[in-house]
């Protein structure tokens, strides 16, 4: 019997979070009071789906629009166009932001700038409780704060302290606790470990793995480090200049990447092993990532692509499923 609770658990295979044709254009320069100026197409029509309990990795280099995508999903920035549906709720058009934020939480990259320096840890964690769980008594809130701090590896003694008394890794734990205190269902993590030291990075990655189990979370994990993503995420989407160029289950992406950009990206990651390093062949890309302000015509990757042909210059390739669950936006990959 397929019970209702099972359906609620999301085992039906239905997408839990579904993003369709998402766009975010930012105006640039000083707009005059009336006219409209140029726009940067930070996110230009991306679509993906996430099943319950999955961690989707969103990888790309700086300026590819991964962070903007993350913020737009939670409407921390308003999308220009597109549709976001989360657990049956129309995120793009809802007016009930509180209901939305209670379920979907964001974790910021920089634990130094994401905590108000003038607030104690207790007040930082109490803020979402005041907003989302107004009916709770103060002592219940305090119990929940202590409990959440313990889940992320801190103790009740830390409640009265201020952010500057903590190290980077501990601050990121506080930030995680703030996002978790109301038991959200989806977390969008924006490079939560990239500001941390190597030994602390591992602690936070392991913590995220554990929290995902304990809270039954689904996640969108944004990162530039392919190795970190590999350890945490499945499936993985690779972004380049505002678009997804490849999306695939984890094993396939790393073992047989289809898009030439993904291939170059993977080959550029140095491996901490000198023996393997001597054999590694780096596929060096020429030039820099172009500015999203005047993105190249056709396939945005064609000026740097070793395979680029005539059609790549003229037409923009669509994301097509080439193997089951593995799609790439590349003419060459589609017809080898």
């Amino acid at each position: 019997m397929v019970s209702l609770s099972e359906k609620k658990q999301g085992y039906s295979g239905e997408p839990y979070l579904s993003v369709t044709g998402l766009k975010k254009y930012f105006p640039v320069g000083r707009r005059s009071l009336t006219g409209k100026g140029a726009v940067v197409k930070a996110v230009d029509g991306i679509s993906f789906q996430l099943k319950k309990g999955q961690i989707l990795g969103l990888v790309g280099e700086s300026g590819c629009g991964k962070t903007t995508t993350g913020r737009t999903i939670l409407r921390l920035i308003e999308p220009t166009d597109g549709n976001i549906v989360f657990d049956g709720m129309d995120v793009t058009h809802t007016r009930d932001m509180k209901a939305l934020r209670k379920k979907m939480q964001f974790v910021f990259q920089d634990p130094y700038s994401s905590l108000n320096p003038r607030m104690s840890i207790f007040r930082i964690l109490k803020e979402p409780l005041d907003n989302f769980m107004g009916h709770m008594s103060r002592s219940d809130k305090k119990d929940l704060v202590v409990q959440t701090l313990q889940t992320v590896g801190l103790t009740a003694d830390h409640m009265g302290r201020f952010p500057h008394e903590f190290s980077g890794g501990q601050r990121q734990r506080v930030a995680l606790a703030r996002s978790l205190v109301c038991s959200p269902e989806l977390m969008v993590c924006d490079e939560p470990v990239s500001a941390l030291d190597v030994s602390i990075q591992a602690q936070v990655i392991n913590l995220l793995k554990r929290l995902k189990q304990e809270y039954n979370l689904s996640m969108v994990f944004i990162a530039h480090d392919l190795a970190v993503v590999e350890h945490l995420c499945d499936p993985i989407a690779v972004m380049y200049l505002g678009g997804i160029v490849e999306i695939s289950p984890k094993e396939e992406l790393y073992s047989s990447p289809l898009h030439p950009y993904t291939q170059a990206l993977l080959s550029a990651v140095p491996i901490p092993d000198p023996v393997l390093e001597r054999q590694r062949k780096v596929q060096l890309l020429t030039g820099d990532v172009p500015s999203p302000l005047n993105a190249p015509s056709g396939c945005t990757f064609h000026p740097r692509c070793p395979l680029a042909g005539e059609e790549c210059r003229l037409q923009r390739p669509q994301l097509v499923e080439i193997r089951p669950g593995h799609s790439a936006a590349c003419f060459k990959a589609a017809s080898p």
């Binding site: 990655i205 190795a227 790393y254 092993d273 393997l276």
Partner: peptide, 8 residues
């Protein structure tokens, strides 16, 4: 403690 691509 370093995540590595060669040891997935």
């Amino acid at each position: 403690s370093v995540p590595r691509l060669d040891r997935p």
